[in-house]
Design a protein around this nucleic acid. Sequence first.
DNA 1: ACAAAAGTGTTCGGAATACACCCATGT
DNA 2: ACATGGGTGTATTCCGAACACTTTTGT
Lengths: 230, 230
Amino acid sequence: MAKKKQSGEFHQMAVATDGVILTYDEKQIKVLLIKRRNAPFKGEWALPGGFVGNKETAEECAQREICEETGLKKLSLEQLCTISDPKRDPRGRVLSIVFMGFFRSGKTGPLAGDDATEVEWFSIHKLPKMAFDHSKIIKTGIKGLKNLLNIEGAAFELLAEKFTFSQLQTIYEEVLGAELDKRNFRRRFMNSGIIMPLNEVEKNVPYKPGRYYKLDRRMLKSEPGLMPIF
Amino acid sequence: MAKKKQSGEFHQMAVATDGVILTYDEKQIKVLLIKRRNAPFKGEWALPGGFVGNKETAEECAQREICEETGLKKLSLEQLCTISDPKRDPRGRVLSIVFMGFFRSGKTGPLAGDDATEVEWFSIHKLPKMAFDHSKIIKTGIKGLKNLLNIEGAAFELLAEKFTFSQLQTIYEEVLGAELDKRNFRRRFMNSGIIMPLNEVEKNVPYKPGRYYKLDRRMLKSEPGLMPIF
DNA sequence: ACAAAAGTGTTCGGAATACACCCATGT
DNA sequence: ACATGGGTGTATTCCGAACACTTTTGT
């Protein structure tokens, strides 16, 4: 008879969360990193995250850690994957549940942890050397973004409430890695009816000011909460 | 200064895997369940799975447990999600990493664990009462399947190497919950070039025998290993 | 002969593509 | 005046949707 599972054989392990927090800023998609204050990898850049407490879910843990380390609150978070390689953390076996989060462009808050951790947004094309396997995690996350764009309304999680067409288009171009035709792009969204024009245009720009639009959530077919990743 | 993370504060917890193993059989999509031999939920149906060992990854654990409990080996597995509700298991805190697996229709093996566990395929439309939160997990999995169909080639993971058009179409209809037009369906796949006809037809069927086809993997754009789920 | 599912073509409308010029603003 | 990005229309192609009858087999 094969090994029976009885208590005592349950290998306990530490469980952590990591957050890949994205935003759109200065025509780029950026990811939020913090500089580690402790060993291992002290001084290196890493994803915000930490160990899951006794009575919290993984998502609660991610929200808490992200808030403690970066000051950002109540982000919209989605589970990305769970990493279970026994040797990924030099301290011992640590499981990591990875979340992807979207921070609306524009409402840039304080960006400082309660203990003055260094926190910084990095363009996903210019990432620094990073702790653990965090580089790989981010690459996985970016790949997943491509699929997200197919989900109606996902791109808007990265934008401010009001946005111009060129901001929206740049997100698609950044993620898809390809240039898109302005006229066709505009037509597509106008026909879909999911965005509506506002009576407001850009100010103080050295070119013809662009009109602002906003997402019309009533027109979305899939509810936004259920946002499938990959 | 906020709570520092120092060893001793790491809450250790048990980590398990669960597998949602799907196949296509008798015009239905089915999921593989086992009858639990031990408390809790002794005698109830449950997803195959068990605790992650000291030196294995979650996927290795899932493969091992599925093999031990059902006899199926080397399934293609994809991570679905991780469940971290502190109260989901009456024995205490157990994290569960859920995998979705595809078992090729046709090569139906022994289907018996090494200790004569009861193992059975259930139509996803007629599921029994189940242990833990396994009902909910399966529902999540089925939803994810819809997205999978958009990924070129995903449906073929459920079919035997050779299959008829109506088998392929039935999978789409089952998952999408809608009837599809035969002619349009056939045209779509023929134009895509990802399937090729074989010189072989069904035998001993009381109707005009259907031709067999097979997937032409060279024509797939996305590599099959990287099969994004949700 | 009958039942059951396989197989086959055409028409139509909407969506995606390709493409080039003028417009409004700040400096 | 110039530099910068905003904004617009048309022709063409491609794809998905709708739709009904004949064919082959086992019983």
